[in-house]
């Protein structure tokens, strides 16, 4: 029974972080058909943003999370205005934008390394302590992570499904020309999507760093997991991404418990590859029909 509770507690925390890390990635893919290789850096920057706000600017701890959110969002905006904007709709956009965002990632990582050093900082925006369920200690920080991730994802879902802005984003994703004919300024929609995705990634970065530490490479691992989650869900399917994230978090927690921490992700990836051989378009993705 304790084992079960332990796996659920760890798995839910992992799943919540992964979901927050993946949703933005899926949103960008779904709307722009762009795979953002800098997504991990958006997380890193969010984490350092919240760290700086508290440690350097002396802002209260509860400002930390919104600070990461805002810094992540701004990074998304800047990426759009400096790069994506000029490439959308050009030839080989899908490949070229991956290359460009990979370039952005390595530049940003180096800038953080030069600005803050390689020393792993502790994230001040976190809680200590916990409570017991049976013989298992559940930390308050895990609860905060699950709650914050759930709240942000619910807000994103509400925004996408119930607001005019969200409708415009979905319309642009489904049919670009038709959205323009409705009067949607799709240029601006793209900017909004990158801002939202960046903000979610920034918040994810704050949460992830609260469990581990801050380092310039901290975004790499969650981004890798976000990749796999997006692939399982079928690229671009935002709702499916959340579900896939939580499931994979639980699977990873179980594998970690029974086989050791090292094998959590490898086993998960192995399962994913087997799964993709069976369903090449992911859980929710649609088969792309090539018209002859």
């Amino acid at each position: 029974m304790d084992v079960f509770i332990q796996i659920i507690a760890t798995g839910a925390t992992l799943g919540a972080m992964y979901a927050l890390a993946s949703v933005g990635l899926a949103l960008i893919w779904g709307t722009l058909g762009m795979f953002n290789m800098a997504h991990g850096l958006f997380m890193t920057i969010g984490a350092y943003g919240s760290y700086s706000a508290v440690a350097y600017l002396g802002l209260p701890v509860y400002i930390g999370l919104p600070a990461g959110f805002v810094v992540g969002g701004l990074t998304g905006c800047i990426t759009h205005l400096l790069i994506v904007k000029f490439m959308v709709g050009t030839r080989n956009f899908g490949t070229n934008i991956m290359v460009a965002t990979a370039g952005v990632a390595i530049v940003l990582e180096d800038l953080i390394l030069k600005g803050f050093g390689a020393y792993p900082f502790r994230q001040p925006v976190s809680l200590t302590g916990g409570f017991r369920v049976g013989n298992v200690v559940v930390t308050y920080q895990s609860l905060v992570i699950v709650a914050v991730a759930a709240a942000l994802i619910a807000m994103t879902a509400f925004l996408l499904l119930k607001t005019k802005l969200g409708r415009a984003i979905r319309a642009t994703a489904m049919n670009l020309d038709a959205a323009r004919l409705m009067g949607v300024r799709t240029e601006r929609t793209y900017l909004q999507v990158l801002a939202i995705a960046g903000a979610l990634a920034g918040a994810a970065g704050v949460l992830i760093s609260s469990l581990a530490t801050l380092s310039p490479q901290m975004g790499g691992d969650p981004m890798l997991k976000a990749f796999v989650i997006c692939v399982v869900a079928g690229l671009g399917h935002v709702g499916g991404t959340g579900l896939a994230a939580v499931s994979l978090g639980l699977i990873e927690a179980a594998v970690q418990y029974f086989l050791g921490v090292r094998f959590g992700f490898p086993v998960m990836l192995g399962l994913v590859i087997l799964f993709l051989v069976w369903r090449p378009n992911g859980l929710f993705g649609k088969k792309v029909v090539v018209r002859l």
Binding site: I83, V99, A100, A102, G103, V104, A105, I106, V107, L108, D110, L111
Partner: peptide, 8 residues
């Protein structure tokens, strides 16, 4: 930084 900028 040089590599990243070259790519972009």
């Amino acid at each position: 930084i040089g590599m990243g900028l070259a790519l972009v």
